[in-house]
Amino acid sequence: MRIPIGLGVAAVVLLLAGAARADTIPGDVELGAGLYDRCLACHSPARNRTGPKHCGVMDRTAGTLAGYRYSESMRESGIVWTAETLDAFLEAPRKFMPGTKMTYAGVPDPTDRVDLIAYLATLREDAEACR
């Protein structure tokens, strides 16, 4: 029951954002936006803070945003952020990427991560939150 509703919301939001990826990114964007509260001490969509901004993070190579000082581990990881790599990273950042300065235990619930990643995927450069 939750999943079809989630897909519906994701489809609408992504459509509004001018994206056509609702088929590839499952998860509930609205729940994901709520879960993003956990990230707000360090991140925001459009500004670099303690952590780098998240606009355009999907398909970006980790540690490559100009104007943010990454750890060496992040800079040299060569990882590209996809639903899969984000899922592995967010489950346990320091296990997935030893030495990262994202010193956060992680998001243990797999469903939470799917929702969170659906939200991150809406943060394309042309999205409302990113302008």
Binding site: R38, L40, R94, T103, Y104, A105
Partner: peptide
């Protein structure tokens, strides 16, 4: 309030590490 809520999550995420 948003910053403080975020800070709670951030410290919660730091404690086990």
């Amino acid at each position: 309030a948003g910053l403080e809520k975020g800070a709670v999550s951030a410290y919660l995420g730091a404690v086990p590490l």
